[in-house]
Design a protein around this nucleic acid. Structure first.
Lengths: 213, 213
DNA sequence: TGTACATCAGTGAACGCGCGTTCACTGATGTAC
DNA sequence: TGTACATCAGTGAACGCGCGTTCACTGATGTAC
């Protein structure tokens, strides 16, 4: 370790530039969504020259993909926490609570972190299959898997006809996803947070009733 | 009318530049969504110098807003057509068909014209209230109004509890909006069109069952 | 323990790009008389 | 019917900006001997 003259950091080598750039990228995404993840700005915030980023990311898209992955992981973690906090009960009650946990956590994350939420669903132009559905939280299960678990139990406990089960994930997902986007991006963006939270529960009510009718 | 030398068009004056630029903007949005609505490219396509656009639009945002408005009107028109094609029947049957028409038209437009759909929901940063809900088709009623009509009739014909009526528009809207976006932008983008159409109907089934359960 | 040297992780300068926008201008139009 | 002239709707050139990316480079690190 030697002193490094004009450098603002103590060393010529940063030490953990990849993580620092990713953190800066997350900050940018948080502030302005995927479009705001600008490679030069990330290096500026870290205090490093623009081209230094290319030691750690192939290009700007690689940085944005890393940001997207981390945002997705945060979403998964948030949902995990609610899912794991569900108290014991009848299979039916637990399944209903699970569906609600996934939906509630999903929308809550979107409303709390609209920029990261949008970054999470950024689609790299060259990507074949999305990782959106495959990012898992600490439980090791993705939100989509948790949702599947809940819906399987809807059928198993007899409150949902088996004929309705196929692709039911997409129906539930659509509802909370759409509501989240209408709130953060769209015509419902003026809705106060407490009302948005209330309507979120009604969205889930509707989904639940639709499945179990 | 005199000949105009090097100009590719017959006249120095274009004649209808505003509409031509708007048409070019629509084309750009169709191809690549709101971000693709680039003022210079629009003038290029029309065959006019870049600054000529400023005779007709205050700035790039004004062009994009005009594009957004027209896309919204197209969406409204598409929904109108389905809505107006509903055959007579019991009040209940008509109401159910109306709900389905609005949802089906909404998603169909999104899948047919993903770029325009996204442009329709572009949010100008300085705009207080969105025009998304207020753009109407030939009937003079916006999609949101048509949806309201249908839901009012759900209550009036006794298939939906009045307690569920408030804000029910947002619940239905969320579901189809989310499904549309998951398909065009998101993790369901690999879904073939015929399957997407089929799932659209199931989304609407779920909404309808959720309201009438 | 010391030193040569390959490798790694940064720097500084520059590139081309395309954008939105502004300036001073000119050709065409239409209206008053 | 003809002409002067204000107004309108374009042009051409240029601006500054910030971006992603590449080049040749240098300082720091760690390993072989």
């Amino acid at each position: 370790m030697t002193t490094a003259g004009a450098l603002s950091r103590p060393n010529y080598h940063h030490g953990d530039l990849r993580h620092a750039l990713l953190a800066a990228g997350m900050e940018l995404a948080r502030e302005g969504g995927p479009d705001a993840v600008v490679l030069r700005e990330a290096t500026r915030r870290v205090g490093v020259s623009p081209n230094a980023a290319y030691r750690h990311f192939a290009d700007r898209d690689a940085l944005l993909s890393a940001v997207s992955d981390e945002a997705l992981a945060m979403l998964a973690t948030r949902i995990d926490a609610l899912f794991d906090g569900i108290p014991a009960g009848t299979k039916e009650a637990v399944a209903r609570a699970q569906l609600r946990a996934v939906g509630t956590g999903y929308v809550a994350f979107a409303l709390d972190e609209p920029g990261l939420f949008r970054a999470a669903f950024f689609v790299p132009t060259n990507l074949e299959t999305s990782s959106a559905a495959s990012k898992s939280g600490p439980s090791g299960r993705s939100p989509l898997e948790l949702l599947s678990v809940a819906l399987d139990e809807f059928v198993a406990s007899g409150i949902m006809p088996a004929a309705r089960r196929p692709q039911a994930e997409f129906l539930a997902w659509s509802s909370v996803h759409g509501f989240a986007l209408l709130c953060i991006d769209g015509p419902l963006r003026a809705l106060p947070r407490d009302q948005a939270d209330a309507v979120t529960q009604r969205v889930i009510d509707m989904v639940e009733a639709g499945f179990t009718a």
